[in-house]
């Protein structure tokens, strides 16, 4: 089977508004379809910056500079679209429906559990109540949180535990049936049991969704991911299948990092 790339980052550089030097320099990174790609590296290496470029959430704040290409595969036409060309508000909205994002801290909205999951669906224009309900339920079921919340859908989402809130956020993103899901250190604010639940969920989700995860936790990267990218000071040092990166890295820097000699 030919390897399919859902996203392809080509010669990508990024500079924050007002910064002297670019934070990312000439990044080339493929994102395989229905696989988990992990980005690892010490704090400040640019892995979150890169992740946040993949749905252009950077554009919430003005003045950042992009160079290069980030191609997103259009599954129906089979063509690549460069997401860095997007300029219109409507196209940004479409991009973010196709490329979902989960943050480090759970971000439930101040509304009921049901409304949290329905939020993105309503924005996407779904008004029919029965369809909404179906989609919310299936998203919650698909995010391994249904049994815990099925009797309290009308309750405030703030009342859930941190781990439940994070799975609710995943359900909220999954409800839109995104093609790619970006996870920015999704378990670093959670306890080990909640972390386990999220990791299990990620493995389950990759049947339908391609996943990019930023993590500080190298065990997590090695457990979860199929491919791993090691970044250091704004550059991609090495990218390969995860077992190669961890067992047989080509670069000395990668080896030092994954064996815990620095970082």
């Amino acid at each position: 089977m030919a390897k399919k790339l859902i996203m392809d980052i080509k010669d990508f550089s990024f500079r924050y508004a007002g910064a002297e030097k670019p934070s990312l320099m000439s990044i080339n990174l493929p994102v395989h379809k229905n696989k988990v790609t992990a980005m690892i590296g010490p704090s400040g290496c640019g892995k979150s910056t890169l992740l946040r470029a993949l749905n252009r959430i950077h554009d919430l704040y003005p003045g950042h500079e992009y160079q290069g290409k980030i191609n997103l595969l259009n599954s129906s036409s089979g063509e690549n679209e460069n997401i860095l060309d997007i300029k219109k508000e409507n196209d940004f909205i479409k991009l973010r429906q196709r490329v979902g994002m989960i943050f480090q801290k759970p971000t439930p909205f101040p509304m009921s559990i049901f409304d949290n999951v329905a939020y993105g669906l309503k924005l996407a224009g779904i008004k029919n109540k029965t369809i909404l309900e179906e989609k919310v339920v299936s998203a919650l079921q698909g995010s391994a949180i249904w049994t815990e919340v099925k009797d309290r859908l009308k309750e405030d989402a703030m009342g859930l535990s941190g781990g439940q809130q994070q799975r609710l956020c995943i359900a909220r993103a999954v409800a839109l049936r995104p093609e790619v899901l970006l996870l920015d250190e999704p378990t670093s604010a959670l306890d080990p049991i909640s972390t386990g639940a999220i990791e299990e969920l990620v493995t389950e989700l990759k049947k339908d969704i391609s996943i990019v995860i930023v993590t500080h936790n190298m065990q997590q990267a090695s457990r979860l991911s199929d491919y791993t990218a090691f970044m250091y000071i704004g550059k991609l040092i090495e990218y390969n299948k995860t077992d190669k990166i961890f067992l047989n890295p080509k670069e000395k820097l990668t080896e030092d990092y994954v064996t815990g000699r620095f970082g």
Binding site: N55, I57, L60, E89, I93, K94, R96, Q97, G100, M101, F103, Q104, K105, T107, F109, Y119, G120, L123, A124, C169, R172, A173, L176
Partner: peptide
Amino acid sequence: ELREAGIALGGGK
């Protein structure tokens, strides 16, 4: 993060 989460779900500002 709450603003970003809303934007990330396809919301306008």
